[in-house]
């Protein structure tokens, strides 16, 4: 199940979206996410859908692959939708026992679900088309001004990129340890919450030990390759804005303006 998460995974392809500067993509995502919370009517929703669809199409990442990422949030999606469905006050449409569903609830649940789905797919377009290193490079450079207030931007970016590299390894390791303990008769499923939490010890202890051992090894390996923080480092793939980034910025800003306008006047 854990393997199905596509959020944060890179999908190699040769597309214009892949070639965009990560900073451009970060900025576009930020505006896109904000825009999702501005629309109040189907026109806005339609616009956002068209905007997103065209980016997905440009990115050459199969749509099915992106939708797979949604599986991980199905539970959250259902819960949020249910909350909206039952707890929004208004004229009841359906009524049974203590529950009632109003038209407003129905609409608000639908809106919320659409927002969440768009949010996940929209952000996964970025992670799927940008290597984790490019993404952290983009963050590092975009956040560089924060260095002035003593925030170690380079170190944070480095930690992020290492975390992204090791997540799949640790996921696999969790799977392995779990199987090994099941082979020794461990039970990760039955029992109440407290018992379940207690049963996790044989999984978590080895996992932490392994993570620490890996961290230690990695620190040595980085030191051996002359890593000594961000100062004096050069970049193999320095970030440089191209003409296409300028165009992308313009498109995104125009889209955002239209969304705001639609939100206010329609």
């Amino acid at each position: 199940m854990l393997r199905d998460i596509t959020i944060g995974q890179y999908y190699p392809a040769d597309s214009v979206i892949h070639k965009l500067d990560p900073r451009t993509k970060l900025f576009a995502t930020l505006l896109f996410v904000i825009s999702l919370f501005t629309f109040r009517n189907p026109v806005g929703l339609g616009l956002a859908a068209v905007f997103m669809a065209s980016f997905i199409w440009l990115s050459k990442v199969p749509f099915g692959y992106m939708v797979k990422g949604l599986r991980a949030i199905v539970v959250i999606l259902i819960i949020t939708a249910l909350f909206n469905l039952f707890l929004t006050p208004g004229e009841p449409l359906v009524k049974f026992w203590i529950f009632s569903i109003s038209q407003e609830g129905f609409i608000s649940a639908g809106k919320m679900a659409m927002r969440l789905i768009f949010l996940i797919i929209g952000t996964s377009v970025v992670t799927l088309t940008t290597t984790p290193n490019a993404l952290t490079d983009g963050l590092e450079k975009a956040l560089r001004p924060l260095n002035a207030i003593k925030i170690p931007v380079h170190e944070i970016a480095m930690m992020m990129s290492i975390a992204l590299r090791f997540i799949p390894i640790l996921v696999e390791e969790t799977d392995k340890i779990m199987k090994a303990q099941i082979a020794r008769g461990a039970d990760f499923e039955s029992g109440n919450l407290i018992k379940k939490a207690k049963n996790m010890v044989p999984l978590l202890v080895p996992l932490f030990i392994s993570a620490f051992r890996r961290a230690n090894d990695l620190a040595l390996a980085m030191e051996a390759r002359c890593y000594h923080g961000g100062s004096g480092r050069t970049k193999m793939k320095p970030l440089r804005y191209q003409k296409r980034d300028g165009i992308a910025y313009m498109i995104v800003i125009v889209y955002f303006g239209v969304m705001i306008a639609v939100g206010i006047w329609l």
């Binding site: 199987k179 082979a183 010890v201 044989p202």
Partner: peptide
């Protein structure tokens, strides 16, 4: 069943 690197399961 004893997995590869079984010492990784000690806790």
């Amino acid at each position: 069943l004893v997995f590869q690197y079984p010492e990784h399961q000690l806790f």
